[in-house]
Design a protein around this nucleic acid. Sequence first.
DNA 1: TATTTACGGGTTTTT
DNA 2: CCCGTAAATA
Length: 818
Amino acid sequence: MFPQDLFPGAPEPLEPSTPAAPSATPPLLANLNPEQLAAVTLPAGHALILAGAGSGKTRVLTTRIAWLLQNGYATPGGILAVTFTNKAAKEMVARLSAMLPVNVRGMWIGTFHGLCNRLLRAHHKPAGLPQSFQILDTQDQLSAVKRLCKQHNVDEERFPPKQLVYFIAGCKEEGMRPGDVHAHDSDGRKKVEIYQLYEEQCQREGVVDFGELMLRSYELLRDNDAIREHYQRRFAHILVDEFQDTNKLQYAWLKQLAGNDVGGRYEARGSVIAVGDDDQSIYAFRGARVGNMADFVREFDVQQQIKLEQNYRSYSNILDSANALISHNSRRLGKNLRTTQGPGEPVRVYEATTDLAEAQWMVDEIKQLVRSDGFERKEIAVLYRSNAQSRVIESALFNASVPYRVYGGLRFFERAEIKHALAYLRLLENPHDDTSFLRVVNFPPRGIGARSIEVLQDAARAAGCSLHDGVSAVPGKAGANLSAFVAMVDVLREQTEGMNLRKIIETMLQSTGLVEHFRTEKEGADRIENLEELVNAAESFVTQEGFGRDAVALPVDELRNDRLTQSPASQGLDPNAPVTDEALPAVAGIVDADTGETLSPLAAFLTHAALEAGDNQAQAGQDAVQLMTVHASKGLEFDGVFIGGMEEGLFPHENSANEREGLEEERRLMYVAITRARKRLYLSHSQTRLLHGQTRYNIKSRFFDELPESALKWITPKQQGFGSYAPNTGGGNPFAQRDRSGYGAVRSEHFASPPVPVQKAAPSHGLRVGLAVFHTKFGEGKVLALEGTGDDARAQISFPRHGTKWLALSVAKLTIVD
DNA sequence: TATTTACGGGTTTTT
DNA sequence: CCCGTAAATA
């Protein structure tokens, strides 16, 4: 089929000479639904694809690329596909190469940061960076800021380094350099000043943080016409995944690649296809702007919008629940998932008395799912809003001997021993990387204490040089120790010259004494194992990961052809010259545009380690129940899903519940969680929960009120009079008392009484659990529990502002709110 | 320098 | 309550 057949009124087809369709049905397009087909075969031009959960988004993206290539509408070199995670990028590459025999190397498929890194390596000179600049991860960034604060006597009480890191990252995400930030007060000015100092420090040391990768390459494109135009010409087809998660800077970066803003008029060169789902935008807290979707439609004058609403994942009870919930959000782009599958099982809802009981119930259900219903354990996920919730669930699973796996936590390249090893390797590449220097100068211990380091830092600062170069200025024994360290690293650098990566790392591990040090340590065995794993990681990076292959496979001549410097004429940058595959830079390997040289294997590996911190899931492969936060579950799917802790204050989280924006993001989060489930969905909440060492009394989440009762099945024994109120059928005030009839089984023997006092019969004060009350000091609240009679009567009341309190009714001034 | 104690902070997080 | 970091001590 041709695009124009699908869209009679659509713009011009890609090329006037669109070839006739092959006689046989193109296998590429087989089994696509009409919307997917339309998206895959969109004519040239900008388009927005609203892709609902489970609608085959990745398939559409990859098929689109394959279709473009197969029909000659694009060359591999003309494609830029950008994602947020390495996982998504890898999946795209894998699926693409399964679809057609294509030179994946020639395409720019990667994460925003990965592609930025590539741009900056290729054009490090105009970008103002050394060719082997190192990348700071968040840990490194924090220690760099701490070091800066100490050096400039910044009061760390008033300006917590963590907050400064947050501030700096936030500025960069907004595209702001220190000069662009408007400070309102003296504290603000101080922060900007520190930002400035931090930038200078990074520049001096030849390091960039994640934000800098984005911002620096954005500026490179913005300020360098030749480079920008080259890439604009080159990337005729730009595809962006998870567009709802882009921040301001990422969108600006895309605009630089897509075309020029000429006096308010926007001249786009390539065609941009943005794929996203505003209902799954859950990263506003870290700068993502859903508004980029609307901006994109406006600024790019998007004519084509396609909604993928056919869901291939879940039964309709699950989907209906998701649709009903998300319909409570305002300002949506509008989308409703549908499925051809039947209703399936109802969504099961459970009310536990304690978090412990909730976890135990989950374990019991999981065991039954596995035993009686044929679910695989790895197809069952337990999702929670915050990591703190995993503990109880873990221990319940552990005690029941159910294998489980927790996502999150330290990733491979973030482990301390690995960071130490990497720091040594970085010093081989760049001796002036002070962050790395400080990390290992006394690790393993070699008699260089805080005192010596202080002296060295003063000396280096006075001389305006790096710590490495400042060592000679330190007198005495301290100086000797420091010199010995520097000499060791310098000798190692010479020694490893010309070695292959594996050998470099092995030599380093030996001569720095890292392995030896852990051999004598109590829990050193694991660490040594990890260091051995580092050697393996390096080995497989060289052989498969693409570096070696890309760097070697391309003839040097080809590289020279597309060298790119600031003199466009001599570099084949004539804007009118045809862009062919041959004229394109080798992209998968990192190539210096000036010299055509590729990055050294070590430098490439260090980049890899910084940009891809590795898997953070333990013991992969085992058939284990999956535990993770709702955020971490995005993009995944499971046969059975448990969402625990569905309580006010937890989900929606108390910190988000105040503003509407926050609450709507929580709702989207819940939407994401629900749509993970294929067959079976369980929701649960607990009356009490141990949090921060205190028992908290929570009422159930308002989100229950936003789910269709027809899709739910309450499997909890009815708990008379405590912490529970019925879900209503409409919207309205969730704190209002409601009709409790019509659902819930009779109290079951299986369950102990709630651990908190249950309301006695015929109270004289007129309060009931669930009633909304007003307190002169604490404002409006909700009655959670009651106990005692007469003058001893007390009520536990949850106030949105002041938390949960027990109040003596004879004293407290309470009125019942209707 | 290594070990102990005190303290603070505790949504969500990829790169 | 439970973690990681920072100061305090042997």
